[in-house]
Structure formats: structure tokens, C-alpha cells
Design a protein around this nucleic acid. Structure first.
Length: 318
DNA sequence: AAATTGCACAACCGCTTCTGA
DNA sequence: CTCAGAAGCGGTTGTGCAATT
């Protein structure tokens, strides 16, 4: 839109003139922003930026706050439950990242978008199909999602066995709370050092990561290696596929996925009105999956396994 | 050990939608 | 109703780090 264009252009001019900063945020800027919002609240981003003494556009401030500084952000890896929801909700709504993010409390649209681009699209590429193709959707629905459900169930069993009573919450809690967030999570050292006790405590209690761009993600894991289900490394892929494609397995998948969404609805009442559980279950199998185009004989089962191995073994997924 | 490649994620950009005067 | 500014959204880019060659 021309109007927007003009605004952006003017912002650009200001940036060029040296009035505005861009690029990675500094600790000092973060503290300014957090303190200002703690005192005055959100909104009116352009004037907020000026009032807070930040040489940033309102847009930049808003983004920084929403995607990084908000105290209710969930940090750490995307859990299997969240993966499942993302896959499911994306199959419903496509790239409506913001809408999808509404059902993953503490996750940002940016985070989900990045997850989709870096992980899911990569796997589509491995399978040599378009991420929006029916084949890929079927693979997701009848391969990955049942697998995730199995994993979630396995972890639930494991967690129940391993977890101290103090960690045993309801299922909803398990979705949104992760042990990697210490109860006493607080500002990272560099913030404390710079702010010198000027940090608003309660509002930023869970800020627990580094601040500058390019910083690596937190190295903590969601459940730790001990909670991993013991998938036999040498399990036969084709055999598992057959099992996973068993109709009862798929039915369980759908049931469980829907349960997750119901949990989300309870957690954050929403307009979720999907009805995929009411869809007729297809007769499952390779041809019906529509993956014939992948040429099952040459379908790189190993790549499926490697994908799953990624989901199982990479710290950010566990 | 150095160079290259790939990944993950923060930040930016352009556009659309919303809101209030 | 119109218009301007603000907010929101989805796509894209830049960059630091880790893994690989």
C-alpha cells in the first residue's frame, strides 16, 4: 500500500539519517523497553519507542517485545505435543502463523514460522515433494503425527514413572510447563550486571536467555535424555510404517490430537472449531496414502528414520 | 586446523487490516 | 464515509554457531 510504503520510506530515511537504530538489540535497549513497559504498559509503539528513549521504530519495539521480551514466553525446544499441534493446525489453516500461535501459549508466530521453515519444509525437501502437496500432508498425518503421538504417550508413561510428585500436574500443565524452566528463572547475568538492580522482577521473571541476535538457543532440553522412549535403533522402518498406518493407530492418533486441542481450548478458550475427527478414516496403506508418487520402493525409509531420529535425538527436539 | 556448509533464529520488510478522528 | 496512523501478519534476510569436509 502506498501509505504504508511512505511510512516505511520515512522510517528508512530516519534510519539512514542515523536517528534510528536497527539490527540486533542490545542489553541496554532491552532493559529500557522492558522497564518502560513494566511501568506504562504496552501499546502505542511509536510513541512508546520515543518516550522510552529508544532509537528504534515502534514496529521494531513491538516485535522485540512480542517475540523475545514478553514474560509469558515459553523458552526451550518445541515439544512433541507442540509439534503435533503445529502440524495439525497448519494442515487446517495453512500459513496462518499468528492464528496457530494462539493455540500454543507462550510461543510466537515467528517461532512457529521458523520451526516450520527450518524443520518441516526441510523434510518435505528430503522427500522431494512440495510441502503443500497432498502427499506430504498425508505423510505428515499418517506417519509423523502417529509417531509423535506414540512418543508423547511413551513420554507420559516415562514421566509418570520418573517425575517427582511435585512435577506431576494435570495434562494441561504438562503441555505448557517444562522442567527446563527453573522455578526461580530470572534475568541473565548480563542484564543484572547492566541494570544494576533496575529490573522489574515479576514481569520478567522467566526471561532466561541471551539477548543479542545470533545467540544460540538455550541448551536446556524439555525432558532430558532419560525421558526418551526407547525406540530400537534397528527397528525395521517398513514394519513400523505398516503398524503406524494401521487404522486403529490412526484413530488413536486423531483422538489424541483432538484431545490436545481440547486441552488447548480449555487452556485458552478459542475459536478452534476444527472437525477433523469427524472426517472418515481412510483405508490406510501406501497407495491410499498417496505416496505412490514417491515410489515406495525408493522411498527413503532411512530418511524417514533419520527425520525421526532428529526428532528423537536432537536436543532441541527432545 | 582451516574452510565450507547448513541450521536456527532474531530482525527486518512490505503489505494488509484495524481503529479512531 | 473517508482518511491517516497504528497494529498485525506473513515472507524474507542476515548472522552466529555447529557440524562436516
Amino acid at each position: 500500500m502506498d501509505m504504508a510504503h511512505e511510512r516505511d520510506s520515512s522510517s528508512e530515511e530516519e534510519v539512514m539519517a542515523g536517528d534510528l537504530r536497527r539490527g540486533p538489540w542490545t542489553v541496554e535497549e532491552d532493559i529500557l523497553l522492558v522497564n518502560y513497559i513494566a511501568a506504562h504498559g504496552e501499546g502505542r509503539w511509536n510513541s512508546l519507542a520515543r518516550s522510552a528513549g529508544l532509537k528504534r521504530t515502534g514496529k521494531s519495539c513491538r516485535l522485540r517485545w512480542l517475540n523475545y521480551l514478553r514474560p509469558d514466553l515459553r523458552r526451550g525446544s518445541i515439544t512433541p505435543q507442540e509439534q503435533l499441534l503445529i502440524l495439525e493446525l497448519h494442515s487446517r489453516w495453512g500459513n496462518r502463523w499468528s492464528k496457530i500461535a494462539q493455540h500454543l501459549p507462550g510461543r510466537t508466530d515467528n517461532e512457529i514460522k521458523n520451526y516450520w521453515r527450518t524443520r518441516v519444509q526441510k523434510h518435505a525437501k528430503q522427500l522431494k515433494c512440495d510441502v503443500n502437496s497432498q502427499q506430504f500432508k498425508d505423510v505428515m498425518r499418517y506417519l509423523w503425527m502417529p509417531r509423535l503421538v506414540e512418543r508423547i504417550q511413551a513420554e507420559a508413561v516415562q514421566t509418570a514413572a520418573d517425575t517427582p510428585l511435585s512435577w506431576q500436574h494435570g495434562a494441561d500443565d504438562a503441555l505448557y510447563e517444562s522442567p527446563e524452566l527453573p522455578v526461580d528463572a530470572c534475568w541473565p547475568a548480563e542484564y543484572a550486571a547492566v541494570a544494576g538492580g533496575q529490573l522489574p522482577n515479576a514481569s520478567v521473571a522467566e526471561l532466561s536467555s541471551t539477548t543479542t541476535a545470533g545467540s544460540s538457543s538455550p541448551s536446556t532440553t524439555d525432558s532430558g535424555a532419560g525421558a526418551q522412549p526407547s525406540w530400537p535403533a534397528a527397528v525395521d522402518g517398513a514394519e513400523w510404517f505398516t503398524t503406524a498406518c494401521d487404522a486403529s493407530s490412526a484413530a488413536a492418533t486423531m483422538c489424541d490430537t483432538d484431545q490436545l486441542i481440547q486441552q488447548q481450548q480449555q487452556q485458552a478458550p478459542s475459536q478452534l472449531a476444527g472437525a477433523w475427527t469427524s472426517e472418515p478414516l481412510p483405508s490406510l496403506g501406501f497407495p491410499e496414502l498417496g505416496v505412490a508418487d514417491f515410489e515406495i520402493g525408493s522411498l527413503d525409509v532411512d530418511s524417514i528414520w533419520s527425520m525421526d531420529d532428529l526428532w528423537y535425538t536432537q536436543p532441541q527436539f527432545v
